[in-house]
Amino acid sequence: MTSDPVRDDNARRKAIPLFDGDLARRGYALNAMCFSFNEEANRKAFLADEEAYCAKFGLTEEQRDAVARRDVLAMLEAGGNVYYLAKLAGIFGLGVQDLGALQTGMSVDAFKAMLVRQAEAIPQGARVREAV
């Protein structure tokens, strides 16, 4: 297979999403809504009428759709930043492992097991060091 630099670059950008000015601009409304969820009254208002709450913040069609489908990767594509999206996830009772599972297509248990397995890569003796 020949390598396609454009495709490789896109894949890399997806794999390591850097929240730059372009995303910060595109994602402003969605992130502003998520930022509002620091307040409980706003979380309740969202739950009471999701459509109206999204409209109030002027979410784009793409953002509205991603939120309605609870599609985290689509929210990222639409300019969502994970620090703010985590507050939206919290409303649905989803933690960062649930988010990880949703984005990688693994089950939550498989995702958690993948995290635990990474401990195997720690070299012997590198875990704890205490002063003499």
Partner: peptide, 17 residues
């Protein structure tokens, strides 16, 4: 650690150490 994107769950003990 990485929370977002298809690489969510990424860690790198080599770099950390």
């Amino acid at each position: 650690h990485q929370l977002d994107g298809p690489r969510a769950g990424f860690m790198n003990p080599e770099y950390d150490l």
